[in-house]
Each structure stands twice: as C-alpha cells, then as structure tokens.
Amino acid sequence: MTTRWIEITVGLFVALGIGALFVLALKVSNLSEYGGEEGYQVHAYFSNIGGLKERAPVTLAGVRVGRVSDIRYDPERFQARVTLTLSAQHDYLPKDTQASIYTAGLLGEQYVALEPGAEEAVLEDGDTLLFTQSAVVLEELIGRLMVNLTQD
C-alpha cells in the first residue's frame, strides 16, 4: 500500500463525504429557501391564523412569491401580526392587496394567498396590508352549520 494510493483514496473519501453533506443540504433539505434573494417585508393582521407556521409559502394566483417570516401576537390590537417576506422582484403589488389564509388540500398545510387590489400606489417595505381574511376553522364552520340546520 503506497503512500500515494493512501492519500488519493483518503482525498476521495473526504470529497465524497463533503459531497454527501452538500447533497443533504441542497437536494434533501430546504437550504435554497434561506437567504439568497433579498426581499421586502409587509405586515398583515389576522383575527385568527389557524395553523399557519413560519416559513409557510406566500402565493400570488398560486405562484410562490415569498414566505411567512414572523408570527406574533399584538397585545394592543388583540390580533395576530404576520410578517410576510416577499421577494424583491414582485414590487408591483397595489396598496390595497388582500391577504387570506387558505389550506392546501383538505388537511394540508396552510399558506397565505395574496389578491392584488386596484390602487396605483404599490406596497413598500414595512407597510401593513389593510384587507385580510382569517383562516377558516373547521369547528366554527360546523358550529355555524348546526345553528343554521336547527333554525329551519
């Protein structure tokens, strides 16, 4: 076993191992979602966010344009404040854009869908969305249905 052979195989081993780590980071997990493109942030207040989580997608007509970067409770407005990070290329959204929380599939993950309004002025970093629609809670819906049924 020559030293040359040993060093070549060890080099190959280390390169393979580091390559596997890169595959795990890039192909298997979501590293590509972190950092990279810079975006701008807008806030939206919801009275109920249902099961929305951080890093949930933000879509525009189904096309992904950003993600939820922060969720916290605002004790002054008694509402949930959701911070949306939108990628910088989508800088054409009108000020009266509406944000709604929907569910992908019947029991899937929840996401924020944006619907552009009609105003001329566009959203800028730090703006707050004026129109929001909270998540639909299944129990609430069933409760309302039961009330309607018993009234008839």
Partner: peptide, 13 residues
Amino acid sequence: LSMPLLAALFSAV
C-alpha cells in the same frame, strides 16, 4: 473526522 462524513454518506445513499 470520519464519522460525520460516513453518516452523511449513509443518509445520502
């Protein structure tokens, strides 16, 4: 040194 490399290879494969 070799354990994390081997584990990463194991997971990737």
